[in-house]
Design a protein around this nucleic acid. Sequence first.
DNA 1: AACTTGACGGTCA
DNA 2: ATGACCGCCAAGT
Length: 114
Amino acid sequence: MATNTDFFDRVFEVVKQIPTGRVTSYGAIASYLGSRQSARVVGWAMNASHALPEYIPAHRVVNRNGMLSGKNFFGGSNIMQELLESEGMVIEDDLIANFKQHFWDPSIELNNKD
DNA sequence: AACTTGACGGTCA
DNA sequence: ATGACCGCCAAGT
């Protein structure tokens, strides 16, 4: 199918596959889906994810700096940070410590290269 | 129907 | 190293 709005659904599929204690970036997901520059749309998908009947670990998705750019969307508090810390990571000033160490790249982990 | 904004990212100056 | 602009796609006004 691969319709334009399918991008959202694919984003959800990937995010739902992020293992606990791991994080990824909007750009990584976008790149995995084939649209490097559509990282912003990934963020929009996250916004819509909270309306889904399923649980989308959007707190495991941060920007390429490992910064909790969307923490404001988790109720206005640092729920996002607490969730990540609860999963074993360390957050400092809304920034994930050892971000690279916890980074989960769908292009690698899912290895979707036919 | 058109314009602006947005949970991003890379390149250029 | 820092700042500004462009590109991408969808949603809100």
